[in-house]
Design a protein around this nucleic acid. Structure first.
Lengths: 108, 108
DNA sequence: ACGGAATATACGTGTCAAGGCATATATAGG
DNA sequence: CCTATATATGCCTTGACACGTATATTCCGT
């Protein structure tokens, strides 16, 4: 999942789709990306579950699926706790205490 | 930044460091990862700003820096709006309306 | 059927990053 | 200084993946 969004073009595509579903051609024009490139990235995104597509005549419309984003959000959650103000400062304080304790042991 | 966390070993390292700062050896033992591998990944993480290190005799202690996580969180924010309940349902509804309108145009 | 629009996919190429192994470097104690 | 511990880095290999070009496939109107 994280490997998927590591690619900048795919992030750009996702950024477009968050507004509304779009066809390959629309993505192509808005991002100035060659059509085969668009299709290839969309395939990756589709297979990874980030998007789903529907057929509209010759057009394929792509839209976001929320699940992978929720999973990423879950992963990020642990770090959010880490960086929220109070916890952050306390952790650093305790780490410093811990270091001092260890240094005392070493010098013994 | 996203390319950094695309690598599973690095995510694992970050997952360890969220609890408390650690030395290379501790990471090595907890993740059962060869020492040079740990060092290499830590270097990548350090250069990308995810971690910072301090020296404790022969040991290098690594700890998290919050900024990259905050940036990722910001990026995810747009999708959070997308998947929050009400907006999500409304969007889908509007998309369906949009599709119907287009189909009517086509058949005209 | 044919032609056109839209898109998916095949094929080939070049780049790059992860991992393994070896070695260099940093720090401290005796 | 020597020895020990801890870690960083060099070198090489290899597989993954993005991209460009070409072609195949899907769908529809006439």
């Amino acid at each position: 999942m994280f490997e998927i969004i590591a690619e900048p073009n795919r992030r750009a595509i996702l950024g477009l789709l968050v507004s509304s579903e779009q066809s390959v051609g629309e993505i192509e024009r808005r991002l100035r990306m060659p059509q085969p490139t668009v299709s290839k990235h969309l395939r990756v995104l589709r297979e990874a579950g980030f998007v789903e597509s529907t057929v509209d005549a010759q057009r394929r419309l792509y839209r976001l699926r929320p699940e992978p984003f929720q999973e990423m959000d879950d992963w990020l959650e642990q770090f959010r706790r880490f960086w929220s103000g109070h916890v952050d400062k306390l952790e650093r304080y305790l780490d410093r205490m811990d270091q001092m304790t260890q240094k005392k042991r070493k010098t013994k």
